[in-house]
Write a protein that binds this DNA or RNA. Structure first.
Length: 768
DNA sequence: CACCCTCGAGTTCA
DNA sequence: CTCGAGGGTG
């Protein structure tokens, strides 16, 4: 790129960054039309209708938009084809038959209405050929008398680039067709793409060579195919061949064949396969729109089970006779549609990097972004872990960043789009003080990257986090005690001194305490306090509500009448009831609730089982603690250290005084109860997905009750994996390791009667 | 010294 | 649910 071109691109980027997605889309369409029109004139009529500078400006504008919104870059984008660089590198080739693009739908409803229209136009039910829409580069191959004579990119659909020399090096593409049933002229359309693994290794290679990374497999395929061999040194040439050999082709179209010996699209695929052309293994013929929709939904959930990237599903009417009947619009055939999945990687603005403090005091920077739709949900935040990660990712506040969902769930910032910087970005500086309480942040021990707020006792963020944690499923599992209540109880606007200064007072909470609480109302969008007309913050109570005449619980002389006829809300009464019930939960839950470092549900269970009471654990020495299986020196130290702190012991004492049961009834004391001789003794079981008849917790408890070990991840030590609907990576891991997989019914048998009963049931022949 | 496992954190969904 | 960090165990 020349300097002038760089400037043009950067300037365009600055404007475009402010465009909302819909306007950007419209602008991209407009530019594409202009560019294709200019190209048509140039190649088709040998005439220039615009000067080079204008043409270049359009291209740079379009490139800038596509960098900002990669999802707008269609496969037929002019930036991916002829003229993108200089227009003279590859010879133009005219396709025998125009390569049309497909119309898109973005939802099941849109797809079903397309199918309904097709069936209405056809006047009958039709079959649908469903296939994966591979994220690659479309290619047209021309075979004359069975020999490959040319290969061309799509280009603008009518004229493409001649990439025959490069294509001849691809292993997956035959130079000659097998057999002799093919016509004299065959033009097949296919997709050249990288498998995900090959794409990753290609980028790793590019990185070691100091070359530019490819944004996605399609760009990589395009880049590899459009490499020019002249002027390259031998080493680069070898590397290129190595990469090219990893390209594969799958055929999903055929044109220029007036009289095929088969009557369906799927028949054509079989024919192509018999000629030695590589076709995709992933297609099916559906006999109804609903069946086709089921295929779409299936792969929507299993996009990553396929070795290559897919950005959607292509559905075609299978009956060839109907293709002519239905015809085509100027851009796309009416007998086929592309269902586009939501993009998994998008660009968005990094508005700020903010630091949050968790229940352990760890200060974690996270990215605050312009809300963006990724993989089907709207994301506005993503963790950045610590200041080293921020630095390693190289993001600046104000950058346009690439956002994705790791494992399809957890939002992750991949990095900045450096080309779109305009100089106003600024670097993130890790604050020296806790953003919530102002204490000086410091590493817990020398050499730690993580900074922590040392003010464990009264830092609002930490107290709030701990109270929230107490209510969580892995601890006392108190319904109604979550993030929101925890905040209301520890830092309301009224009263000034919150009911809970630390978690010590949790079981002393009374109805009056809850009734008095007011919190600031925050805007759901911005997170800022909502203001009243006089400029003061709007407040409301989470635990009061207006009394209605119709209330069955209406009492004219209730205890809380003073306040304009308000009564305790349902949430408040439930919280009080649940707190009361929590007082008699199992000992290990209290141990987890105490927030001792390194003591989670597993260590807590081991300790509770051995010692039988909090007092016994408090009294135990470091070595006595470390003698418990699953507890080592570190956890033992962590426990004794914890009990050395006055206000920690105060928590235990006040909970006990409030009636919390901090001992297992009937436990004989240290060294005592251990469950032995259960039917699952010595066996490790992992439960995943939803198992009919069991809750997530219930399944774990059933395994433990039977004397087994309930592990949270699958390893080769795992004996059984009980998998129900919705099972994810654990099931895959079990298959990979050859661990025995059982369903809910078998799981029930296993925990009640043991593994032998399972085998007996299996051999008695329930199959068939 | 290898594993293998648990902990802890952040996030979104039903 | 997944990742990194770091503890426990053979």
């Amino acid at each position: 790129m020349t300097d002038a071109a760089t400037d043009a691109g950067a300037a365009a980027g600055a404007d475009i960054a402010d465009l909302p997605l819909e306007s950007a889309r419209a602008e991209a369409v407009r530019l594409t039309e202009l560019i294709l029109g200019a190209r048509d004139a140039y190649y088709g009529r040998d005439a220039e209708i615009v000067d080079d500078a204008t043409y270049d400006a359009w291209m740079h504008q379009l490139e800038a938009i596509e960098r900002l919104h990669p999802e707008l870059q269609g496969q037929d984008s002019p930036t991916l084809s002829v003229g993108a660089a200089s227009g003279t590198l590859f010879a133009p080739v005219e396709h025998a038959e125009r390569m049309l693009s497909l119309d898109n739908v973005f939802s099941d409803a849109e797809f079903l209405s397309w199918a309904a229209k097709v069936e209405r136009d056809a006047g009958r039910r039709v079959h649908y050929l469903c296939e994966l829409k591979i994220d690659g580069l479309a290619l047209s191959l021309r075979y004359e008398n069975g020999r490959l004579v040319s290969a061309a990119t799509r280009g603008d659909g009518r004229v493409g680039e001649d990439v025959t020399d490069n294509v001849r090096q691809l292993r997956g593409i035959p130079q000659r067709l097998l057999g002799n049933g093919h016509p004299a002229l065959v033009e097949v359309r296919g997709e050249v793409f990288f498998n995900v693994a090959d794409f990753v290794s290609l980028n790793a290679y590019q990185e070691t060579m100091g070359d530019r990374l490819f944004a996605n497999p399609r760009n990589a395929a395009s880049g590899s195919l459009r490499q020019k061999t002249e002027g390259k040194n031998q080493r680069q040439l070898d590397a290129m061949h190595q990469r090219l050999s990893r390209l594969r082709m799958t055929v999903h179209g055929i044109g220029a064949w007036p009289d095929p010996p088969v009557s369906t699209q799927s028949g054509i695929y079989e024919l192509l396969a018999s000629w030695g052309l590589p076709t995709s293994a992933y297609y099916t013929v559906a006999d109804s729109p609903d069946a086709a929709d089921a295929f779409i939904q299936h792969y929507g959930g299993h996009r990553h089970d396929v070795e290559h990237e897919i950005d959607g599903i292509v559905v075609k009417v299978d009956e060839l006779a109907l293709h002519d009947e239905l015809g085509a619009t100027s851009r796309a055939p009416r007998w086929a549609i592309a269902y586009k999945y939501p993009p998994e990687q998008v660009n968005t603005k990094l508005l700020d990097i903010v630091v949050s403090v968790g229940r352990t005091g760890r200060a974690t920077p996270f990215a605050v972004m312009e809300p963006a739709r990724v993989a089907g949900s709207v994301v506005r935040q993503a963790t950045l872990h610590n200041q080293d990660v921020v630095k390693a990712k190289g993001v600046l506040i104000g950058d346009t960043v690439v956002l994705r969902k790791a494992g399809d769930v957890i939002p992750e910032v991949l990095g900045p789009v450096v080309e779109l910087r305009d100089g106003t970005e600024r670097a993130f500086v890790m604050p020296a003080d806790c953003p919530e309480c102002g204490s000086r942040l410091a590493p817990a021990k020398a050499g730690d990257i993580d900074l922590r707020c040392p003010n464990a006792r009264s830092c609002p963020a930490q107290v709030r986090g701990r109270v929230d944690h107490i209510g969580s499923r892995g601890a006392l599992d108190i319904e109604g005690l979550g993030e929101v209540s925890a905040a209301a109880l520890t830092q309301p606007v009224r009263p000034e001194t919150p009911p809970l200064v630390t978690e010590a007072g949790l079981f002393d909470l009374r109805a009056e305490d809850l009734f008095a609480i007011d919190v600031v109302v925050r805007d759901a969008e911005t997170g800022l306090p909502r203001l009243l007309e006089d400029g003061s913050a709007d407040t409301r109570s989470p635990f009061r509500r207006q009394r209605k005449k119709s209330d069955p619980a209406f009492q004219s002389d209730g205890p809380f009448d003073g306040d304009a006829g308000h009564i305790l809300s349902v949430a408040a009464t439930q919280l009080l009831v649940n707190l009361e019930a929590a007082k008699s939960k199992e000992l290990w839950r209290f141990l987890v609730a105490l927030n001792v470092r390194h003591v989670g549900p597993v260590a807590a269970r081991a300790l509770a089982q051995w010692f039988g009471s909090i007092d016994a654990i408090r009294a135990a020495s470091r070595d006595e603690l470390a003698a418990v299986e699953g507890v080592g020196g570190i956890i033992a130290d962590s426990l004794t250290d914890w009990f050395d702190v006055d206000w920690h012991r105060d928590i235990v004492d006040r909970w006990a005084a409030a009636g919390a049961q901090l001992a297992t009834p009937g436990h004989p004391g240290p060294g005592g109860a251990s469950v032995e001789g259960g039917v699952l003794e010595g066996l490790t079981v992992v439960a995943t997905g939803s198992l009919e008849g069991y809750s997530r917790e219930g399944a774990q408890q059933a395994i433990l009750d039977a004397g087994g070990k309930a592990a949270s991840s699958v390893s080769k030590k795992t004996d059984f994996v009980a998998a129900g609907p919705g099972a994810g990576s654990k099931l895959a891991k079990a298959e990979e390791l050859g661990v025995r997989i059982i369903d809910a019914a078998q799981f029930h048998l296993l925990v009640t009667r043991g593994p032998d009963a399972l085998d007996a049931a299996a051999t008695s022949g329930t199959e068939g």
